[in-house]
């Protein structure tokens, strides 16, 4: 039996906000330790892995590992009807019904909405995610997630968003991280300087650089990855010339969401 409860729908609403625009379905793995979710976009260019430990839930009962594929678009619709302070209950029996039930209860007027989701196939997930060796990453940048989202939006409005191949070139040296894109009639560069601790900013921009790196990423995917900002106010971007880049958002001591994709390589 699987029975979980969250007294605030906010967390799950934010999870769906962070993944449902790029990923159409996901594999949900429920085990004693918590929920592990994985999804890949239809072109298998991006993979997202989310961990929510059991402690993230107000009630967590899972006496047998349960794995299910769910349609994220349908779930996002259901969650859009939910209010942030609705109590969510997630239940599944292993009665081979291949459905999971989400119940939303609004605390003020006791209205209850019940959604049954049928299990669906998941395109190629779950996959085993190896611990990529730190040494392979030339640079890691930690910055405010709202800042990363703002930069992606600015570059998308400037870049030739009609052109599906518009890239953002992320370059890191020891002082700053640059975001560059080419539009129809010009280019745009946004420079983020590493904040000195003396500035004591609310949210620092920190750079760990082994060697300079400059990589090109599809701007549409960067925009989707920046939606992780619903779950965390910091994003860590790990860049390697020959491994998947990782965009990680730690979810306050209960887990993380990580987006992976390879840089575009000059032909």
């Amino acid at each position: 039996i699987l029975e979980l409860r969250l007294v605030q729908a906010t967390l799950f609403k934010n999870v769906l906000e962070a993944i449902s625009d790029l990923f159409s379905k996901a594999n949900f793995d429920f085990s004693g330790t918590g929920l592990e979710l994985q999804a890949m976009d239809t072109s298998h260019v991006a993979l997202v892995a989310l961990l929510l430990r059991a402690e993230a839930f107000n009630h967590y009962l899972c006496d047998r590992d349960l794995s299910m594929g769910l349609n994220l678009a349908d779930m996002a619709k259901a969650f859009r009807c939910a209010n942030n302070d609705d109590i969510i209950t997630i239940k599944a029996e292993e009665d081979w019904s291949d459905t999971v039930t989400f119940t939303f209860e609004s605390p003020e007027d006791g209205e209850i909405s019940i959604f049954d989701f049928d299990f669906v196939g998941t395109n190629g997930v779950p996959l085993e995610i190896p611990e990529f060796p730190e040494s392979e990453y030339q640079a890691k940048v930690r910055m405010p997630s709202a800042k990363f989202m703002r930069i992606c939006k600015k570059l998308s409005s400037f870049g030739d968003s009609g052109d599906r191949d518009t890239v953002v070139i992320i370059s890191v040296d020891k002082e700053c991280v640059n975001f560059f894109t080419r539009g129809k009639t010009g280019t745009s560069t946004i420079v983020c300087r590493q904040t000195q601790t003396v500035d004591k900013p609310k949210e620092p921009t920190l750079i760990e650089m082994k060697e300079q790196v400059s990589l090109a990423f599809d701007l549409r995917y960067m925009n989707s990855f920046s939606k992780g900002s619903t779950l965390s106010d910091q994003v860590t971007i790990s860049l390697s010339s020959n491994l998947p880049a990782v965009f990680e958002y730690k979810i306050a001591e209960t887990g993380y969401i990580r987006y992976y994709m390879l840089p575009r390589i000059e032909e």
Binding site: H44, V45, G124, L127, I129, P130, D165, R264, E267
Partner: peptide
């Protein structure tokens, strides 16, 4: 142009 590779061959099928 720049070539985009898929991500799958960096992860292991379970």
């Amino acid at each position: 142009g720049r070539k985009q590779s898929t991500i799958t061959n960096y992860f292991v099928r379970t």
